[in-house]
């Protein structure tokens, strides 16, 4: 059964939000949804670029009170 896992990468620079997301994605199961929390504006472009290249699914991306909430479903 799929689940939503929060990856809190707010206020991190090294290795940074996208690396945290990829690390967590490796541990997830196909169908799982990960919600990345990031304060890095770059994540808005970096994450979809990686998701599209690898072939996962971008579920949603929204800014709530200065924090980007980006949901991705693992597809393979």
């Amino acid at each position: 059964m799929s689940q939503v896992k929060i990856v809190d990468a707010c206020n991190t620079f090294c290795p940074g939000p996208l690396m945290e997301l990829i690390s967590n994605m490796k541990q997830a199961s196909v169908g799982d949804v990960l919600e990345l929390l990031s304060t890095d504006e770059g994540s808005v472009n970096d994450v979809p670029e990686w998701v599209n290249k690898v072939g996962h699914e971008l579920v949603s991306s929204q800014n709530i009170d200065g924090i980007w909430h980006i949901k991705i479903r693992k597809t393979k």
Binding site: F13, C14, P15, G16, L18, M19, I22, G42, D46, E49, W50
Partner: peptide, 12 residues
Amino acid sequence: YPTNRVHATSNV
């Protein structure tokens, strides 16, 4: 490298 730059930290 795994991300879209040569290092994950933008300034690096």
